[in-house]
Design a protein around this nucleic acid. Sequence first.
DNA 1: TATAGGATTGCC
DNA 2: GCAATCCTATAG
Length: 212
Amino acid sequence: MLRTKTTRSIRAFYGRPTLEVCRDCIGKYIVYESPIGRLAGRIVEVEAYIGESDPACHAATGPSSRNRHLYGKPGTAYIYKIYGFYCCLNFVTELDGFPAAVLLRAAEPIEGLDLMRSNTPTTLSNSKLLSGPGRLCRSFGLTRDQSGCDMARRDSLLYLEDRHEPEPRIVVSPRIGITKATDRLWRFYDSGSSSVSGPASLRGMRTAAASV
DNA sequence: TATAGGATTGCC
DNA sequence: GCAATCCTATAG
């Protein structure tokens, strides 16, 4: 990653096994050069959704108008609306045509906190502005209008950035908020971050942290 | 065309 | 604990 590299090499970052991409995302930055200014957050929690054989993946029932971006090139943003209120941001992984993605669930606000607050009237503390997939999109001002954008392009307004910081302590757990395939340990988070989403019982250090 | 439910959040 | 609110998938 990412900005100093070519579109081809950025594409290669996304075009790998989803669980590897998940692990590599923790501690990286999600940046959005939004209409009202530059926003950035340090990613602390993601989940993997992998293929039509994953019952919890939106591609579980095959291609449709809703999930078509999942079948696009790695690095493609896939943003959908949930519960009629919120949006969730994913980016596509693996091979072009294979439906898999990483869901961004939480980040620590780094740049543009005032802009985030202007996007979302809220009483949340700073550390919680991007804590949860709905909050992340709301504070960033991301909607389905940005779905399908190519985050691997060097001129993309939405992209990942590597600030070459030490790798954080990464913990894995079952995915949360779903009812199917809850046995898969496809959620990854930085156990040292106060911005991880979910109840406290799902944010702490685990002794049985598996590796990818 | 009708209806059920969802990768959530915030307030009662 | 539950309502809010809308889009999609599925059934009729």
